[in-house]
Structure formats: C-alpha cells, structure tokens
Nucleic acid binder design. Structure first.
Lengths: 187, 187
DNA sequence: GATCCTATCTTGCCATTGACAAGATGGCAC
DNA sequence: GTGCCATCTTGTCAATGGCAAGATAGGATC
C-alpha cells in the first residue's frame, strides 16, 4: 500500500499484524491462520515465520500493540474516571481483536519481557485514572480494592458486550450503555 | 470407568465432555483436539463426530452444560446477592473450561435452541438474585442498570482472575478477593 | 566496482488435525 | 431369529503449523 519503504516486498510485519487484527475481529482468534495471512499479504506461506517465529509470536506482538494502544487511549481520555471507563469499553469494541488477545494469555507468550512492559505501562495509566474514585462503605476505603472494582466493572461490561451476552434493549452504542453502568459505581 | 451402562464402549459422550473440560481448563480452548480426546477415551479418531458432529458441536454441548451448571450454582448460593456474586466467581474458577467457552460464542453455535434455553435459565436466576441490589444515585434507580452493573463487576473480576491479570497480592483465594470487590458495589 | 553479509522471503517437506465417506459391530424391537 | 439402527472403525483428503534448505536483494566493506 503506502510505499513508505521496503526491503523485499513491503511492510510485511505491519501488513500481517493488520490482517491478523481484521481476521480476529471478524471471526475470533480460533479462525486465525498464518497461511491465510500470508496469502492476504501476497507472500509465501513461510514468510510470517521470519517476523514472528510462530503463531504465538504473532499474537504476542499483537498483544503488545494492544496494551500500548490501550494506554494511549486512556491517556487521551483525560483525568475523569467516568470518561476513562467509557474509553476502556470503547477501546475493547473498536479494537476488538487486540482486546480479545490481550486477555487470553494461553494464546501468546504473556511472560515475554515486551508484554510485561507494555502491560505495566497500561496498568500505570489505569491505576492513575482510578485514583480519583471516591471510596465508600463507611470504612477507610482500600484504594486497591476500589481500583479493582472499577477495573472489574468496565472489563466485565466490555467482555459481555463483545460476547453478545447483553440484552438487545441496550441498543448499539456501547459508550452510552457503559456510561450508565459505570455511574452505578462512581456516583 | 463406572460401568453404569454402555452401548459399545461406554459412556463416550460424557467421557469426551469431561476430557474436553480437562484439556481446556489446563491449556485453553485453542489446544483442544478432537483426535486427542478420542485417544484419551480409547476410541477411534472419528468416534466424536457421531456424538457432536464437529468441534463446534462438542463445544456447544459444553456450553449448555456450563449454563446449567451455573444456574444450579447460583441457586445453591441462596438469595443473598453478595453470596451469589461470590458463587459466580467461584464457578468461573472451578469450572474454568465451561466458563471460558460459554462466553466465547465464536467457538460454538450460540444460536442453537438448547444454548439459548440454557442461557436463559441461568439468566433468570442471575436476575432474580440481583433484584435485591439497593439502587443508588438519588434518582429512581434503574433495575436493569443495576443488574448490569452487578453482572459486569463479577464477570469482569472472574475474567481478569482467570486471565492472570490481577496482582499477586490478592493471594490465591478468589472468593475472598471477590467478596471485597463486590462489597464496593453492594454495601 | 567487486565481494561479502545479513535480513528477507521462497520452495519443499512432514506430522497433525478436522471433516467426510463407507463399512463393521453389537444391542434391541419385533 | 431377523432386521434395524445407533454406535464405532477404517480410510482418505485438504488445510495447517512448523522446520530446513535455498534464493534474493540491499547495504557495508574493501
């Protein structure tokens, strides 16, 4: 596509990641085939191996990309906790493939250094946003507990939305529906 | 094993489902192989096809089993919302394979009548338990919204726990950790 | 400018898998 | 006892992931 630069045949690594995100987003990770990706990119069936080693390697790269993308999304959402929560759900829906892979450690090498680093970066931003959550319950309010509750509610809503498990009456705008749910915890 | 009854070689359908749950619980759905299941059961590689048609058919049966198991688990937990929430998380951890498949509709035929029925049964119990959740926010309190928030928080916590995404300091007792998080919403 | 070097990609190959077709086997109804 | 049907087996095929060995190109070095 974009003739930015090229070695042999173009920006293959990027093309493969893009194609993988598209396939997974449409049909799930189980439908992913390295050979299909190679066909889409117009290269031989063994070309992906050079960039990613194997299937897990490709998904590892996708997960890293996803964590970085999530961190950026949360940063862009600003300091408001509600906005950050909505942005989390919106990220899951817009970058469905990345989100699904990120939280499925059996699909990739979750213990790889790059993954741990990217995951930690996203976690830092997440925790920073949650710090604004008001405590509740009369007691002193455990910040870790509160952060976990906030993360759980947005992650759960996003997961259920992607799974198609939620009732139809919610409509087709995940941001709107998520906002209402998150308010239950925040207000 | 148990010589309860048998046609040709024993209780194959059940044996296959059990083996599938074991494999998925240990290595994830991606590692599931029909031929491996057949080997474990001591039958030929084509035997599973007769009971489930194909891989999606087997996972469909597993999902149905899972929804029924979840409904029973929630019933056993009693009327208390907190207890029901903890039971939901506990179910996800104890029946990891079922839980993972249930909310991954791309792996099976989620539109099958048996699935819709079992899913609806579990949903009924879930909604009944959530009915006890106190509303909040000064406004009239939307019961649907509240139920969604409760479901989201337990589902999110369970998913994050299974993904290994939660910090180690939570220990190894998901029930204990879940209770604290759910209290943030309930108390 | 020639040569080397390395990253990139290709061709060829093999074991495994899911799915299908056709046949064997055994219990059960009648 | 005979036919019937659910259950299971054997045989086969295309597709896949992964490995090994070779081809190709672009740049570095002299």
């Amino acid at each position: 596509m974009s003739p930015t630069r090229g070695y042999h045949h173009g920006d293959l690594r990027r093309a493969l990641l893009d194609a993988a995100a598209e396939v997974i987003g449409e049909s799930g990770p189980a439908a992913l085939s390295l050979r299909d990706l190679a066909r889409r990119a117009g290269v031989s069936h063994a070309a992906p191996a050079h960039h990613f080693g194997d299937k897990a390697g490709l998904l590892t790269a996708l997960a890293v990309q996803g964590f970085d993308l999530l961190a950026q999304t949360l940063r862009d959402a600003g300091d408001d906790l509600l906005a950050a929560g909505v942005a989390y759900v919106d990220f899951a829906v817009r970058h469905r493939a990345h989100f699904e892979v990120m939280f499925r450690p059996d699909l990739y090498r979750a213990d790889a250094a790059e993954v741990r680093a990217a995951s930690a970066r996203a976690g830092d931003v997440l925790r920073a946003r949650v710090a604004g959550l008001p405590t509740r319950g009369g007691g002193p309010g455990d910040p870790g507990r509160d952060a976990l509750a906030a993360w759980s509610i947005v992650h759960g809503f996003a997961t259920l939305w992607l799974a198609g498990a939620l009732p139809d009456r919610l409509g087709d705008d995940p941001r709107e529906a998520a906002r209402a749910v998150i308010r239950r915890l925040v207000d």
